[in-house]
Design a protein around this nucleic acid. Structure first.
Lengths: 342, 342
DNA sequence: AATTACTCTTGGAACGTTCCATTTTACCTT
DNA sequence: AAGGTAAAATGGAACGTTCCAAGAGTAATT
């Protein structure tokens, strides 16, 4: 399945003024030490004396030296690039997560590079193949639908870690970090049952994604714990429009519905929009709980109750795996039910 | 202002199994040609015979060779990395734009890497400094507030292009690609005037950003062309919540307002939300026009009229500058008024 | 058949760093 | 002051590619 390997950069104007760049040699000369010492100082080694460090830093300042990571990576056979491969950056939750991951990776002293696959498995393959040519240290990947477990597995190399996030690929051997979807949906549903609601629907989401099944499982589990609860499920595309359509269908078919658990906040926004059109007030007339806790959710006219997935927690779990090179299969990150007015 | 230069990657487990990797030499040996020929084939040169190409491609397949871009970049002193430096990826329009840029850059045969500055000038400085160590070919940068023109200018190097997008930094010499903000707001306002509205407000936005002034200028220009138009301006934070607050203030102070031009779609969403609370119907009771044309806008219960900024157009303009290395100052990308029901 | 012209191929040097084995320096201890 | 030991500094080799100048092969022209 290897692609024939061409390097087809249509050559851009390269402006190749051959001005010699400043190297460790130049810094060494100015500082009056050897290039090896400069290298030690650059890497923050404690094998260089304070006096040497001082001289070298001054020389760096004077010469305007810029570290050449390509050369370093080539010699040391290890890069500090971490690739964050996101399925859909236009999804607000994904974007949040990407930003959190980037921040935590930077705090680890590594360089994060973000790429977007647009939920397209072929694009994912191509981008990842190209990133491999940069010898990235790690892939943090939210796999597109139809990602092959075997493909994911073979990405793991002695010098390359792989962590999959948010979605689980059946049969894959790579460590995976997920929010506790089932628990979240379970708690949300329980909260609605505690309002004495007996007619509850699960709204939105797409069966092609593993989250969906986990959240739905939590929903069903909570409902089945009591034998007087009736439930319905209405799927939809995972956006605001889908939420609106699913809610309209729900109200048409199940007028007695008392509350809904939404696949995520975006879907919940669509639900709320539809309810407003019908002059129904979220919380008062129909209970609505979302999933994700987007920034907007607490600021809506009726603040949205939701299950918060803390992107920082996900990022921390991922970084923990990176640091310790644990091969442990699954890390479930706790989620928190946040009850607001809806 | 150069940072003392430490490379402080807390060392992660490196798993340094010294399994020799496959190089051009190995491929050459298997293919029965010289390493130079392999290199030519890899770069898609037409100086290699078809027969040689074939042998090399087969050998690549056999050996499982992976191109080492770090080595290539070091020797050739040119990378094919293009950095997209985005001010705020959690903003849906920025995310859209980033995705479009990434796609177009990939089509150019280059590798895009996305980083996020969270509107923080210091973070921007740090990230860009690190990217310079990778010898990126180009920076496409949406500058944070308080970006210094001198800093932006000195990023331009013989081997590094810089293009600023969406925001203009006063005094900077780098090429800049902007949507035609003034024209967009002008046309939006004109469209409201054509509805025979005489009392029009400009809602939302933050005076720290250059777009704001351009859009407001277009608004004012349209209003002043006729001498019976009264206008008001209500600033806000640039999010949904801000839109809601600004609209509530507007209705309180200017009950006779007939329509509003919003700084962007997100603000317009907040405006619409507030109108719904007051039982006012967008379009019928109060005209609302947004800016950006986010995906959700056409799908709202009352489809939002808006000024569309096509992210692909921006991306194309940027790529045109990259390809031709034009130093031309300002490229204004046309925008389109899309009248829907609001 | 010799000359020219052109296409294709090639080995060695080079890119800027880190690694490593070795030497130099500094610091104790007696 | 001599010896021993650890810390600091160093020069050359190496990483895997591309560049370059030159060589080999082939076809066309005389």
């Amino acid at each position: 399945m290897r692609q024939p390997h061409f390097i087809d950069s249509q050559n851009l104007k390269t402006n190749n003024t051959n001005k010699q760049s400043v190297t460790v040699h130049d810094v060494a000369r100015v500082a009056g030490v050897s290039k090896s010492t400069v290298s030690l100082v650059l890497r923050g080694s404690d094998k260089a004396s304070d006096r040497a460090k001082e001289k070298v830093l001054k020389a760096i300042e004077e010469t305007g030296y810029v570290y050449n990571r390509e050369a370093a990576a080539m010699r040391s056979k290890s890069s500090d690039l971490v690739a964050i491969v996101i399925n859909d950056l236009t999804n607000p939750y994904s974007a949040n997560l990407a930003v959190a991951l980037e921040k935590h990776i930077r705090e680890l002293g590594l360089m994060a590079t973000l790429v977007n696959t647009s939920e397209n498995a072929l694009t994912q393959t191509q981008i990842v193949a190209k990133l491999q040519e940069y010898r990235v240290k790690a892939f943090i990947i939210c796999p597109t639908p139809n990602t092959q477990a075997s493909w994911l597995n073979q990405l793991q190399k002695p010098h390359t870690q792989v962590v999959s996030i948010m979605r689980q690929v059946d049969g894959s051997q790579v460590p995976c970090v997920l929010p506790n979807n089932e628990m979240g949906a379970y708690n949300a549903t329980k909260a609605l049952i505690a309002r004495d609601h007996k007619h509850i629907a699960f709204i939105g989401g797409d069966a092609a994604i593993s989250d969906y099944h986990q959240r739905l499982a939590g929903f069903n589990k909570a409902a089945k714990e009591q034998n007087d609860i009736q439930t319905w499920v209405f799927n939809s595309t995972t956006n605001r429009h889908g939420g609106r359509l699913a809610m309209s269908e729900c109200l048409a078919q199940v007028p007695q519905v008392e509350s809904v658990v939404c696949f995520n906040d975006i879907v919940a926004y669509g639900v709320i929009e539809y309810l407003a059109e019908q002059n129904l007030k979220p919380g008062a007339d129909i209970g609505v709980i979302g999933f994700d806790d987007l920034d907007d959710s607490k600021l809506m006219s009726v603040p949205l109750s939701t299950v918060k997935i803390d992107a920082n927690d996900i990022a921390k779990a991922v970084c923990h795996i990176l640091k310790n090179d644990t091969q442990k299969g699954l890390t479930q990150v706790p989620v928190a039910l946040i009850e607001r007015s809806s």
